[in-house]
Amino acid sequence: MEAFLVSTSLVTLAEMGDKTQLLTLLLAVRFRKPVPIAFAILFATILNHGLAALIGNWLMQWFSADVLQWILAGTFIAMGIWVLIPDKLDQGANYLERWQKYGVFLATFILFFLAEIGDKTQIATVALAAQFQSVLLVTLGTTLGMLIANIPMIFIGQKLADHLPMLWIQRFAAMLFIVFGLVIVVRALL
Rank of each mutant, 00 (worst) to 15 (best):
A3M: 05
S9Q: 04
S9W: 08
S9H: 00
V11C: 05
T12G: 02
G17I: 02
G17F: 10
L22Q: 01
L25Q: 05
L26F: 07
L26W: 00
R30A: 02
K33D: 13
K33L: 05
P34L: 00
P34K: 00
N48P: 06
H49F: 13
L54D: 02
N57I: 05
W58C: 00
L59G: 06
L59T: 08
M60R: 11
V67A: 04
V67L: 10
L68F: 13
Q69P: 02
F76T: 02
A78G: 10
I81W: 10
I85A: 06
I85K: 07
Q91Y: 11
G92S: 08
G92E: 14
A93R: 13
L96E: 14
L96N: 11
A107T: 08
E116R: 01
E116W: 03
D119N: 06
T121N: 14
A129Q: 13
V135H: 11
T139P: 10
T142P: 10
T143H: 12
M146W: 07
N150G: 09
I151R: 01
P152N: 04
F155Y: 15
K159C: 00
A161M: 09
A161W: 08
A161E: 12
L164S: 04
I169M: 03
R171C: 13
F172I: 14
F180G: 00
V185H: 04
V185M: 00
V186A: 10
R187E: 15
